[in-house]
């Protein structure tokens, strides 16, 4: 009982043992994978061994090839994200703050949303060619919706009683927006942003596998041509790490921006 309440050394040890326990299975899988590769059970052309992947990782970093392509990918993701989040935010404000705005903006967006945005790739190539534009446009298109939908719901979900209190205390429209609507909708916006970041990587994977000459996706696709499964695995790990890192980044942002929330106050 006391262990659970007072953090003492025993409790910290137990926590450590718990995390170590969670690591056991992944480590076992890696070991099994290495053994399977070493004994020839899994041939190199199917999947490179973990040790080989680690070696390739270092080589790619030493060559500067990984960093170069990573930067290109990051740039595409961030530019697309910036455009998508901006549009999503503006649309959500228009349709969240006024009925006529909702009528004008919500219906077309909902119709467009029914089309899986990745299906627009052929059209984007016809419109924008094969340079950077279609890739950034794809990321932008994919990230509009999560931001729009969440922020719009957040604005509409503001407690009417708080709006009434604001009006009572003499706030004008602009002040109500600034002091009540926007901070109140911020949690929903951040949820949307988190989805949007996830989608930006997803659209990048698709965009970079079509007619790219740089980027992590290009690295993976050209490795395929030479059956370099080690490079493909490195690319997959980078995608995974990018997703993980950006998620941590947004969680940190949430923790700071939403310090007032009961769930964060308790934690």
């Amino acid at each position: 009982m006391t262990d659970a309440l007072i953090p003492n050394q025993g409790n910290m040890l137990r926590k450590f043992a718990h995390s170590a326990g969670r690591a056991v299975t992944p480590i076992l899988i890696l070991v099994a994978w290495q053994i399977a590769s070493a004994t020839g059970l899994v041939p190199e052309r199917t999947l490179a061994s973990p040790l080989h992947v680690i070696g390739t990782f270092w080589t790619l970093i030493a060559d500067g090839e990984l960093q170069d392509n990573l930067l290109v990918s990051l740039r595409r993701a961030m530019e697309g994200l910036a455009i998508g989040v901006s549009f999503g935010t503006v649309f959500a404000l228009i349709s969240g703050l006024s009925r006529s705005g909702e009528a004008a903006v919500d219906a077309p967006l909902q119709i467009l949303r029914a089309i899986p945005f990745l299906a627009l790739v052929p059209l984007f190539i016809l419109w924008f060619g094969i340079g950077e534009t279609p890739k950034i446009a794809l990321v932008a298109l994919g990230t509009i919706y999560p931001v729009y939908l969440n922020l719009y719901a957040g604005i509409r979900g503001i407690d009417k009683k708080l709006l009434e209190a604001g009006a009572c205390f003499g706030l004008n429209h602009w002040q109500i927006l600034r002091h009540i609507v926007l901070p109140g909708a911020l949690p929903s916006f951040l949820v949307g942003l988190r989805y949007a970041v996830g989608i930006s990587w997803l659209s990048l994977v698709v965009a970079e596998q079509i007619n790219a000459s740089s980027g992590i996706g290009y690295l993976i696709m050209s490795a395929r041509d030479f059956m370099r499964t080690d490079i493909i695995v490195v690319g997959l790990i980078v995608y995974g790490l990018l997703g993980l890192l950006t998620d941590i980044l947004i969680r940190t942002l949430e923790h700071r921006a939403l310090a007032w929330r009961p769930s964060i106050l308790k934690g």
Binding site: K161, L162, A165, C168, H179, P183, G184, L258, W260
Partner: peptide, 12 residues
């Protein structure tokens, strides 16, 4: 006005 619920802005 003081309402039945405090109606404080949770983010302030």
């Amino acid at each position: 006005v003081v309402f039945q619920e405090p109606r404080l802005m949770p983010w302030k």
